[in-house]
Simulated assay, not measured.
Amino acid sequence: MAAFKTKPALGAALAVTSLLALAACSDPGATAASAPSSGASASSAATGFNLSPEQDRVKVTVDAAAAALVPDAIKADGKLTVVSTGGTPPLSLFATDNKTLIGSEVDIAYAVGESLGLAVEVLPVAWADWPLGIESAKYEAVLSNVTVTEARKEKFDFATYRNDLLGFYAKTDSTIGEIKEAKDVAGKRVIVGSGTNQEAILVRWDEENKAKGLAPVEFQYYDDDSASQLALQSGRADLTFGPNAGAAYKAAKDGKTKEVGTLNGGWPLKAEIAFTTKKGNGLAVAAQAALNHLIQDGSYARILDRWGLSSEAIPKSELNPAGLPKK
């Protein structure tokens, strides 16, 4: 039997503080309690997703109006250099050759660049390295599940392209109904990542439930995805709660789990994922125009659908919207 750890819930005040602080960290590999590893995904032969290096990406057309907004410094070499972490399917992962980056973030990068009339190069980079790379203009943009925050807006510009969602997932044959609010998790055994914003939300909900006399949540913490999935499938846990993108990919890939509820990653605030560039260089303005072109002509929807992320679509890209507040 795989071991798991439990710990007492923190106070509500600590939960709120943790929520606002940790929601700002959107490293897709650091918070995915139920997301599969990139290695496991790349080696799976029957996923229903194209994981080969030869990607049949959605074809896009150049948007002349958006292309005219590209800063001269970026037009100079005719290329858009984008980085992503390569660690979390379906956002960004390595193909079956273990060197080619693929995924929804990569597809969005290509679609934006090609809409702007630019050649596109997507490079892998560690999460900790992208901020300095963007600030120093070594790279021109990062697409790696980066959430808009007020702190980040001091150094970067943003063009939004996806909602930041968390998902509740249950075993496929589970009788659990829709999870929409605090009372729905009362008495449930929930697998969650320690020190994450989803844990902070769950702690806050648990405190609310206990104040109303409802049964407490049993928090379960696992060291790896295999152990957490075994617990869920064997009936030792009722739900997983973590980043929706990775969990949705896994559900579509193996059919063993189902989504029973989603929640914005910044709850009770709104959090959005964005095309991120150096502040003041003008590229975000062009990217926003390109994204809205892709939304309007349907290419954007086809890209998200291709990777099972239609639930995270936005109706319009926004430039530097209100971000999650500083802690």
Rank of each mutant, 00 (worst) to 15 (best):
99 K>L: 08
100 T>A: 08
101 L>A: 02
102 I>L: 04
102 I>T: 03
103 G>E: 00
107 D>A: 12
108 I>E: 04
108 I>C: 07
110 Y>K: 05
110 Y>N: 04
110 Y>V: 09
111 A>I: 09
113 G>E: 02
117 G>C: 03
117 G>L: 06
118 L>Q: 01
119 A>W: 12
119 A>S: 13
119 A>Q: 10
122 V>T: 07
122 V>L: 05
124 P>L: 12
125 V>I: 15
126 A>W: 15
130 W>N: 00
130 W>H: 02
131 P>K: 01
132 L>W: 14
133 G>N: 07
134 I>A: 00
134 I>S: 04
135 E>K: 09
135 E>Y: 14
135 E>T: 13
136 S>V: 15
138 K>R: 13
138 K>P: 07
139 Y>S: 03
142 V>T: 12
144 S>M: 08
145 N>C: 06
148 V>C: 06
150 E>Y: 13
153 K>L: 15
153 K>G: 15
154 E>I: 14
155 K>N: 15
157 D>Y: 08
158 F>P: 00
159 A>Q: 05
161 Y>P: 01
164 D>G: 03
166 L>F: 12
167 G>H: 03
167 G>K: 00
167 G>N: 01
169 Y>Q: 01
169 Y>T: 02
171 K>G: 06
171 K>I: 09
171 K>A: 12
171 K>P: 04
171 K>C: 08
172 T>V: 15
176 I>V: 14
177 G>P: 09
177 G>T: 15
178 E>T: 15
179 I>P: 01
182 A>L: 08
183 K>P: 06
183 K>Y: 13
186 A>K: 04
186 A>R: 05
187 G>W: 15
189 R>G: 07
190 V>W: 02
191 I>E: 02
192 V>G: 02
192 V>T: 06
193 G>D: 01
194 S>A: 14
194 S>C: 11
195 G>I: 06
195 G>E: 03
196 T>N: 05
196 T>D: 05
197 N>T: 10
197 N>K: 00
197 N>H: 07
198 Q>E: 08
201 I>T: 05
202 L>V: 13
203 V>G: 01
204 R>W: 15
205 W>K: 01
205 W>H: 04
206 D>C: 05
206 D>P: 02
207 E>C: 11
207 E>N: 12
208 E>L: 08
208 E>V: 12
209 N>Q: 07
